[in-house]
Design a protein around this nucleic acid. Structure first.
Length: 766
RNA sequence: UCGGGGAUCGUCCAAUGGCAGGACGUCAGACUCUGGAUCUGACUAUCAUGGUUCGAAUCCAUGUCCCCGAACCA
């Protein structure tokens, strides 16, 4: 990767895993199901998984998650690998889930033997009913308690093909009452007498995703299994499968991490709906240049570099978000600006006769790149008496702000001379058919016309005789609304997403442009030779993206603000209990807690504090122990506000110290023996490795006296003279910075409150 | 018996108790043989309300809003 450092929460986790020695290597995987073409959302995932492997010198497998033979196809398998490689990544290995079917089945028998899975005869409708709902527990299948021997026999007969599709399933025996629906005896195998693209008719039972995926990861020794947010609920089952099959025994098991998948406005990412768009003929195929597929973007002319830059730009996080398509277009332009040679083409030609021009065979040597790009190369551009300019570049009655050609006005022909419009030739209907212009021969080479007349602008052109006629396809976004999924996507298709221009002309040098090559047509945009329909002598060009255009922008209708979708679900769904309700209920159930609540109140705690220290047994015990030694109010404050910070998610009873130790610490602070800041330091130490707070307090350096403190402060101010100046100039927010620096420099011997006062004083004095 | 996640400029992502920062975008200017590029400047944010703290986007509490989960899909 470049010098720019990439960070995201997943790389943070990896850094931590490497630091602590949990892993010595990094192994990821990209696991698409071969049931469609890859799209820009997959590109994000590919860049993440392969990018991590590159950054950490690890491995990344391309693994087809082909566990459902009825939806998958070799066409997709081939397109996926091609897309991954085109994006610039080389899989460490290309693998298929189906190749693990024997091992998976073996482990399924082990689960059965261990009494952790059973064969269920319920049909799909019954299973759904038995599973319960989001708010109600499920109930056990009547087949849940079959003997191991019977289960094993039935499983083997399932595998042998003795039963029809849907007759039986293999289910994990977990917990029908789990609040996580995924844990309510999930299906492991279903019967499918179907031909598999890879295993043929070798199997008639196929593993479910939730069973197959963790095993695949474990078998491949994946360390970090990265997937999208909707699998968060599946993680518990992922871990269950690995633990109970023992597939990772003796090794470090893979762990699943979830990130937010990409949403792009004006774009649809659902594979199912993308398939419909193709099937219903709204586009020409999966690789139609309007499609958000990698194949479509490739054909459109997007480069792999641009797509990778986009993935970097948008980052990786856990918040659902919708990225502005403008960011993708920025990446595409940014890449092309530096890489695409400049040439000239006229989309809608307007004939211009340069009446004063009679040279023949004149050829202009025009550079491929402007000076600011600084790349070498040029091509010959023939001039002629008859040329074409863009119809848009002439207005018979120029509107305000128009800076191009008009009657009597002079403009420069790009790379050539300036011309002045002398005459507009119209047909019988008054339509403009051609222009007659005179030219200023002395103005070639960027020089101004000799008579000092104003040059309004620079326009592009091609010679009439030597330019070549081509077809140009102008693409716009496929959907006319930012959220095509609101309602039926078919209603939201942009009818103008493709405009075919047949009368366009490109300069002579482009006659042999290679399919797939990318160029900038000056002042128009970036274009690529179509790789499918273009033929020598009959070129077809795709517009990749327009140039950024400040003038055109003014005509553009402001995009309507994206309206927030009203949440029908939020209104109808039952509201979850709040923690406060849980605590109150716990006290109703448990008289000990109720008593603790009264006790806390009696000790003078506020109602809120009393509530918080009596919601569960652990907290109650801690508070009782702490308040036995320290002032109850202080004990409660520290327990409520400070302990959770250092616990970093651990339960109280998992901490290496207890309520009594907390009490002892708080007592020292109450008594003024140590400062609150020192107390926080000691608390952090306790949380890390336990110990005796009194001893820890004693071992600390004594508080700095006023003189020592002043010396530290002066030193910090001297070292940060620029910041001090900014502070004095009014950036008072920097006070916190100085306090932080001083506290750090004093290694805990300074009391921040008094330090702060002293710093303010010194800063003002300076 | 509901559970799991999430909320920071218009947009996307940072800041792991100490200067709210970057990019896209927008606006203004400079420059320009592309109304491009480049450069300069400006713009705009911590969901709300309390609390803890010398100091809170960050810790605690209460509330609000959003997403996911009840395929023999992945």
């Amino acid at each position: 990767m470049t010098a720019r450092e990439r960070t995201d929460f997943i790389r943070d986790i990896i850094d931590e895993d490497l630091r602590t020695g949990r892993h010595q290597r990094v192994a990821t995987r990209f696991p698409p199901e071969p049931n469609g073409y890859l799209h820009i959302g997959h590109a994000k995932s590919i860049c993440l998984n392969f990018g991590i492997a590159q950054d950490y010198g690890g491995t990344c497998n391309l693994r087809y998650d082909d566990t459902n033979p009825t939806k998958e196809d070799v066409e997709y398998v081939e397109s996926i690998e091609a897309d991954v490689r085109w994006l610039g990544f080389a899989p460490t290995a290309v693998l298929f889930s189906a190749d693990y079917f024997p091992r998976m089945y073996e482990l399924a028998e082990k689960l059965v033997t261990d009494g952790k899975a059973y064969v269920c005869d319920l049909d799909d409708e019954q299973i759904r009913v038995y599973r319960g709902s989001l708010t109600e527990p499920g109930k056990p299948s009547p087949w849940r308690d079959r003997s191991v021997a019977e289960n094993l026999d039935l499983l083997r007969r399932m595998k042998a093909g003795e039963f029809p599709d849907g007759a039986r399933t293999l289910r994990a025996k977990i917990d029908l009452e789990s609040p996580n629906m995924k844990m309510r005896d999930p299906l492991l195998y279903r019967i499918r007498h179907a031909h598999h693209h890879r295993t043929g008719d070798g199997w008639c039972i196929y593993p479910m995703y939730d069973y197959a995926h963790p095993l695949e990861d474990a078998i491949e020794d994946i360390t970090h299994s990265i997937c999208t947010l909707e699998f968060e609920n599946n993680r518990e089952l992922y871990d269950w499968v690995i633990e109970h099959t023992g597939v990772s025994a003796g090794k470090v098991a893979p762990h699943q991490y979830e990130f937010a998948r990409l949403s792009l406005d004006y774009t649809m990412m659902s594979k199912r709906k993308l398939l419909l768009i193709v099937q219903e003929g709204h586009v020409s195929g999966w690789d139609d240049p309007r499609m958000p597929t990698i194949a479509g973007m490739r054909r459109r002319g997007y480069s792999p570099e641009a797509i990778r830059a986009f993935a970097d730009l948008i980052g990786v996080a856990k918040a659902n978000s919708t990225v502005d398509v403008g960011k993708l277009e920025f990446c595409v332009r940014d890449d092309l600006n530096a890489s695409a040679p400049r040439v000239m083409a006229v989309l809608r030609p307007l004939e211009v006769e340069v009446t004063t021009y009679d040279a023949t065979g004149e050829v202009i040597d025009a550079p491929y790149f402007p000076a600011d790009v600084g790349k070498p190369g040029s091509r010959p551009v023939p001039m002629a008496r008859t040329i074409y300019i863009e119809q848009d570049d002439f207005q018979a009655e120029p509107e305000a702000g128009y800076t191009r050609l008009a009657p009597g006005r002079t403009v420069r022909l790009r790379y050539g001379a300036c011309i002045t419009c002398d005459e507009v030739v119209r047909d019988a209907d008054g339509a403009i058919v051609k222009l007659r212009c005179s030219h200023h021969a002395e103005s070639v080479g960027g020089k101004p016309p000799a008579d000092g007349r104003k040059v309004w602008g620079v326009i592009h052109w091609v010679a009439a005789d030597s330019s070549v006629p081509v077809e140009v396809r102008l693409y716009d976004r496929l959907f006319k609304v930012a959220r095509p999924d609101d309602g039926d996507f078919r209603d939201n298709l942009n009818p103008g997403s493709l405009e075919v221009i047949t009368g366009a002309r490109v300069e002579a040098s482009l006659a042999t442009a290679a399919p797939g090559s990318r160029w900038q047509f000056e002042r128009l945009g970036y274009f690529a030779v179509d790789t499918v329909d273009s033929k020598p002598g009959a070129l077809v060009w795709n517009r990749i993206v327009t140039l950024r255009d400040g003038w055109a922008k003014k005509d553009e209708v402001a995009a309507p603000a994206v309206e927030k979708k009203a949440s029908a679900r939020a209104a109808t769904r039952p509201k979850s209990k709040s923690p406060a309700e849980y605590r109150a209920e716990a006290r109703v159930r448990d008289p000990e807690l109720a008593a603790a609540h009264d006790r806390a109140l009696a000790k003078g705690l506020t109602a809120e504090q009393a509530d918080l220290v009596s919601g569960d047994r652990d907290t109650m015990t801690w508070f009782d122990a702490a308040s036995a030694v320290a002032t109850p109010g202080s004990a409660a404050r520290w327990l409520i506000n400070e302990v959770p910070r250092v616990a970093e998610g651990r339960e109280l009873n998992a901490l290496p110290f207890d309520g009594a130790a907390l009490g002892a610490l708080v007592q020292l602070i109450d008594a003024g023996t140590i400062t609150g800041t020192a107390g926080k330091d000691i608390l952090a130490e306790l949380a890390k490795s336990g110990g005796d707070p009194v001893a820890l307090a004693k071992s600390r350096a004594p508080a700095a006296d006023a003189g020592a403190l002043a010396a530290i402060i002066d030193d910090v101010i001297a070292k940060n003279a620029d910041k001090a100046a900014q502070y004095r100039a009014g950036k008072t927010g920097l006070l916190g910075f100085f306090v932080g620096q001083v506290v750090k420099a004093a290694a805990g011997t300074a009391d921040p409150a008094s330090a702060k006062a002293l710093i303010e004083q010194r800063l003002a004095a300076g």
